[in-house]
């Protein structure tokens, strides 16, 4: 019960924190940090779904009895790599934006507003 609150609770907290940051902050770097937090929350949730009480890492040598679900681990590996790729892209664009606009405040990056 306690571990349920810890794992589910913290993943939900990370997800909603991430959404809150992205929606309310006005600084691009902070928004990207928010995206990263949202991503971590989703990954933590995915991996905690695969946990099985008393399970060990799914490596099948001679002495295994209960193992955790291996599928979410494989999925999270993929999701993490994708998250890294998005972060790298975002930071590259931010570097360029700072060069062109001289600011990271989205209120002042308004080339396209009609």
């Amino acid at each position: 019960m306690l571990s349920e609150i810890i794992f589910y609770g913290s993943s939900v907290a990370l997800i909603s924190l991430g959404i809150m940051i992205v929606l309310t902050k006005r600084n691009l770097i902070k928004m990207i940090v928010g995206l990263s937090i949202l991503d971590s929350g989703a990954n933590l949730f995915l991996i905690s779904i695969g946990y099985i009480n008393g399970g060990t890492a799914p490596i099948m040598n001679e002495n295994w009895s209960v193992v955790v679900d291996p599928v979410p681990q494989a999925l999270v590996l993929t999701a993490i790599v994708i998250g890294v790729a998005v972060m790298a892209m975002a930071l590259a664009i931010v570097v360029r934006i700072y060069e062109k606009f001289g600011t990271l405040d989205i209120r002042r990056i308004k080339e396209l507003k009609w």
Binding site: I15, G18, L35, L38, A42, A90, V94, I109, E111
Partner: peptide, 21 residues
Amino acid sequence: ALEGSMKYLIISSIGSSLFLI
């Protein structure tokens, strides 16, 4: 281009996280 791409990236990344959840 940079501004359009940045907006697209931020909004679309939220979407992909929601899909993952």
